[in-house]
Design a protein around this nucleic acid. Sequence first.
DNA 1: GTCTGAGCTGGTAGCGCTGTCAACGTTCCT
DNA 2: AGGAACGTTGACAGCGCTACCAGCTCAGAC
Lengths: 358, 358
Amino acid sequence: MGRKRTKSGKIRLAEVAELAGVSPITASRFFRNPEALSVAKRARVESAARELGYVPNLAARALASQRTEVIAVLIPSLTNNVFSDVLRGIYDASEGSRYSIQLSNTRYSILQEEKLLRLFLAQKPAGLIVTGIDQTTESRAMLEAADCPIVQIMELGPAPVDMMIGFSHYDAARAAIAHLFAQGCRRVGFVGARMDPRVQRRLDGYVAAMKDAGLFDQRLVVTTATPTSVTLGGTLFADLLAREPNIDAVFCANDDLALGVLFECRRREITVPDQIAIIGFNDLEFMASAVPTLTSVRTNRYEMGRTAATMLIEAIEGRRPEQPVLDLGFKVIERQSSLAQRADSQPALSGMVAGRTK
Amino acid sequence: MGRKRTKSGKIRLAEVAELAGVSPITASRFFRNPEALSVAKRARVESAARELGYVPNLAARALASQRTEVIAVLIPSLTNNVFSDVLRGIYDASEGSRYSIQLSNTRYSILQEEKLLRLFLAQKPAGLIVTGIDQTTESRAMLEAADCPIVQIMELGPAPVDMMIGFSHYDAARAAIAHLFAQGCRRVGFVGARMDPRVQRRLDGYVAAMKDAGLFDQRLVVTTATPTSVTLGGTLFADLLAREPNIDAVFCANDDLALGVLFECRRREITVPDQIAIIGFNDLEFMASAVPTLTSVRTNRYEMGRTAATMLIEAIEGRRPEQPVLDLGFKVIERQSSLAQRADSQPALSGMVAGRTK
DNA sequence: GTCTGAGCTGGTAGCGCTGTCAACGTTCCT
DNA sequence: AGGAACGTTGACAGCGCTACCAGCTCAGAC
């Protein structure tokens, strides 16, 4: 008490320096690069800061240093389970670091993304995480001009802006269909919602696989721009059945839809997998718990977020990863909902088919 | 081109002012309170800003004005579906406003919350959203000393720090049990995971309702500190059955658990609701789609987040709401999983029991 | 004993913006 | 006509911190 303070009542760096008996700039260095101080002064500044309960003013730091300690994250949706796992990874990786996360939601609009990008870049973030590879030309130009490390997440593409971490949705879909073919399925329907670029690529993979087998039929594909939900899975499946009663499997673009399809089968007393096989995408937790257990394509969402943030922080601090593009792959987790009941088929819950693009 | 710029290449307010032929301070006012300018100057500044693509430097603004335009949000978990709905509401409400969201995750630790609170408050946020009412004494003191509006969300309590929006978990649990009693259930089990303060209050409501009816039995309660999941619902239900095979209903502290219980029933060929009734909590989307459809207590999570952020922004801008404490209530959404098959019972999917604390 | 360079420390000068307050022009009243 | 009241504008002085560079000390080489 009695020590002089700024109007706002906050402790400033100058107070800490005074108490420690050093210059403000030395105290400043303590917080940014303690190794640069002699051991004695380091200890003095540390104890002074602790005693006063000093917390740096980030705005002043940002203004003076011309950079922030903010990692900006642009994702298309907060609702989607998939992104909440990715986000958790990002937050976990940022915790304990000096960086804080600034999150924004593009709502699946690349125009909105462009607007947010402009806003964020003007604040000179330390790093940037963006979803996917489908930016506007303008966004792309801004990203390329940005003077901070950037990680593109969720998928892979031919021309990374900087770093990239994801997997091939196309290949994953092909693997899903290959699994169904291996189980003897032939008339495989596709159910998809939202149809964002990644779902679209899953559809592309499905179409390619079906065409390669000479089995493609446009009437097997049911999609909608509506956001995904379990209920919607049931509805779309009902549409598919109305169009093509003669299907033997459904590939769902995500697990919510798959659960909805399962419930709809139950409602109609269609047995799974005997009459219709079901395969989902993402392998959310509940898939292993459903009755029957539901086959899905496992994607490493948490790891993707975590690794993206870790790579980004490393790059910010000057240690660029030797692998700027990372394929996290996928795995077809085979469960009861898609396994043939033939005597020669493998036991449920065991096998898996993994994929990694290159 | 050829116009003078700062080293970083960014457009400053001074450049805008120069092009508009006004002083920097007038240009500054344009961005904070356009009404204070004459119509002519307003137009000049606006077009100059647009022409130069000016974006304000938030760090400089924060430093000069001694406040930020950041709303800090402290939630216990990113994984939990419940919070993703709340968050979506918060982000939606903040969109279009000048405020940005700074999110942090306490991981259900009030000590972690205290640490984050100290950190955030030092940056002088414009407002604060915190989860629940169970802060440490120290946190409570910091909240009370904070010179920004604060909203506590998710539940209600006797002593709001400032504003508060939520509902009574205790009453909601009682309403759930009352519904089961009305269906003729007597041996009602409780299944809960994580056991954070709000789940604990649901348990309290359950215990009180059971005691009032003279039906309470400690062996009917199965809880764990483990985070919730669908699979865990099955496991806990199996534990409950092992202990008390003779139950006729299960109240699940959340919907994931309820879905797990449903699947476990299916696995054991227990019919729902004939042999055992199920009721969940939160009314997530899939509850209406399950087979049988699952009864749940609807909580207004999105609305809670949205209203919290809206109230907060209003308060920041000096318009304090006349209702600083808002009870958003709940509704028991009656569905097949809990409706008695008696001839005199109501038709499924219609009735509901609503509650609001005062 | 001098010189060199490494290691550490401090002084100065802003970063880009806004709070404060004074000054100006205009309108309207007495 | 004089003055008050209002609306509008600008000058000045920082907000708290760090970049830059100069200067100091001391060890080791010669």
